[in-house]
Amino acid sequence: MNKDALRRLVEERWTALEAERTTGERRLRVSQLPVDGDQGPLVVGVDHGGHRHLLVPVTSHRKIRPGLDGPVLLLRKRALEDEDSYQTYADLACLRDDLSDLFTELCVDVLEAATGLPENPLKALYRVLDRWKALFQTQEAPLGPEQLAGLFGELILLNRLLERDSSAHRVWRGPEGHRHDFSTGGTAVEVKASTASEGRRPQIHGLDQLEAPDGGELFLLWLRLQRTTVSGSGAGVVELVNRMLRLCDDEGALLELLAQVGYRPADADRYHDARFVIGEEQWYCVGPGFPGLTNAALVAAGVPISIMDVEYTIDLSGETPEPMAPGEVSRVMNGLIQESA
């Protein structure tokens, strides 16, 4: 079915539903569409207030992306039940009747995308929402060499987590301004990457970056990176991003996180030469005896905390603190996945 046919179809279905008698405030008048996903057909609906809806069927345990909560569009999880069936949906609603024509175009784009991705129509929905959102995004300055190295380090860990769980991008908290790069509340990991050829001297930002979560554990991943060429060995930033988008179950949420650190797919051509080889990788448990300047240490020493914007460098080049064993590293990554479920 082409785009014009889809547009006529959804308009006809919405018009017919609007002509029906209204029901309870929490009820929807719905009509199935001839566009199928892995959990059944997509559905259009009209609620008690006359607002139009597009519903994408999902499994009951599927999480729906937060953040789209009006005043124009509302995206939430909704269950529809009748005498014979019970189905959970991602429910996209337009709360502005004067924008119904634009909502129709958005929904037609979703239906067209879902036709090409029947195994994951929710992913198709997110893709379309993100494309429309991109119309209003402004251009920003490209990432510099140090920023690219830091991003590469975080993407290395995120890829490993996504291999274990397609929802693991939810524990990547650094882009949102969290004090730790990865955190579940009980387990946190700070990633430090450097292109220096000698030493292990990560820079620490703030008095709380090396403080573990309350009642939890903090770990530090140190990576020594060597810049290489496009035709050389190693991995590229763009390659890691593309791989993550294939692995994750919510491309849009991941793209939003990337945008918050300054990376946008539209700028990918700028970063094709950004490739690195991992020359050294060490993991550390940030516990007693680990070097660092923290709020807790200052309080314990009786020093008043009246300073801000603290940055300092620690030296991990010696034999102490001792790096973690591979088995312990695996435990940490499994803990991040399990705690985020």
Results as ranks from 00 to 15, higher is better:
P304C: 13
M308Q: 14
V303A: 13
G327D: 02
E319I: 15
D315I: 07
E328M: 08
E328S: 09
V303H: 06
P304Q: 11
D309S: 14
I305S: 02
P326Q: 12
L316R: 04
Y312C: 09
E328G: 03
M308Y: 13
P326G: 06
E322M: 10
P321Q: 05
P323C: 04
G327T: 07
E319T: 15
E319K: 14
S330H: 08
G335V: 07
E322R: 15
S306Q: 13
V303Y: 04
E319Q: 13
N334W: 10
D315E: 06
A325C: 05
P321K: 03
I307W: 04
E311Q: 14
E319L: 13
S317T: 13
P304K: 11
P323Q: 04
A325H: 11
G318M: 01
D309N: 15
E328A: 13
M333H: 09
T313R: 15
P323N: 04
T320F: 09
V329C: 08
V332W: 00
T320H: 12
Y312E: 01
E311D: 08
P321E: 00
I314R: 04
S317K: 01
S330F: 12
V303C: 11
T320K: 12
G318I: 03
G327M: 08
S306P: 00
I305H: 02
I305F: 02
D309G: 12
I305K: 06
E322Y: 03
G335D: 12
Y312P: 04
S317E: 01
E319M: 14
E311W: 01
N334E: 14
R331S: 10
E311T: 15
M308G: 12
E311R: 15
E319G: 04
D315R: 03
T320A: 10
V329K: 00
G318T: 03
Y312T: 07
S306T: 11
M324Q: 08
P304W: 09
P321A: 08
E319D: 11
V303N: 01
V332S: 00
G335E: 11
E311Y: 02
A325Y: 08
P323S: 05
G318C: 03
T320Q: 09
T320E: 06
D315K: 03
D309F: 12
I314D: 03
V310D: 01
E322F: 07
P323M: 06
D309A: 15
I307F: 06
P326V: 14
D315Q: 05
P323K: 02
S317V: 04
D309Q: 15
